[in-house]
Amino acid sequence: MNDAALLTQAANTAGPAALDVVGVGHRYGARVALRDVNFSVRPASFTVLLGLNGAGKSTLFSLITRLYAIRNGHIRILGHDVAREPGAALSRLGVVFQSRALDVDISVQQNLIYHAALHGIGRRQADEQIARVLTLVDLTDRRRERVNNLSGGQMRRVEIARALLHQPRLLLLDEPTVGLDIKSRADILGHVRRLLQSGIGVLWATHLIDEVGDNDDVVVLHGGRVLAKGAVGNVVTATGAPDIGSAFTKLTQADTGAGAGA
């Protein structure tokens, strides 16, 4: 067994889950956005949160990141309850939001220094971490470039670098490849998958089936409910479909049909 596999095995067997979502619900007025959502993300695992637009993915992300108050259920990051210990939970969390949140008028380095400060990381340590994360996303040569001059894919990679700067143990990405070309999508997916070797848990929200890998875990979210979860192979087998794309279609159509019939 190689080093990476040993690390992954160790991460899977020791300690709490990277993310635990237990009985979470959320409403916007009378409209139910999430209903009794339960799933976990293991350390050193790549979990795809798969759902169509309006499924509740962004709402769930807002709850995990404490942007919205958790009124029903519990969310724990590395065993720390987001509602009760937000500081401990958020210090272990890196986030890439769906809408870009970089300051485009300043340089890549200045954006990263700002983020480091938001995590209490001083300038000297920030410089070391910036060098590390820019190497991870292959952007070392763009360090002093204004963000405005970068391509969409490069901006996304800066956002990933930023999310990794404070060495989180759970990385959330909300549809990070939206609006990117095929090569940029593949690059970003590749960069994030390589992070698993360091023991980080990844939750990747998307509606694009081709971003789901054979060895990933998947959580199928539809209409605010979890329809299926587990290893991709298990979900495919359980639905009797030939692949995850067909399994997803089968699950969501059955749910829509049941909803219409109810």
């Binding site: 990141t65 404490r66 942007l67 937000p86 500081g87 401990a88 939970a89 958020l90 210090s91 969390l93 986030v95 939001f97 809408s99 949140a101 300051d103 983020h115 938001l118 995590h119 209490g120 930023r162």
Partner: peptide
């Protein structure tokens, strides 16, 4: 809900 404030608010500081 969007932009820079989200980045600020997911900081571990109170």
């Amino acid at each position: 809900e969007t932009g820079g404030m989200r980045t600020l608010l997911v900081s571990p500081f109170p």
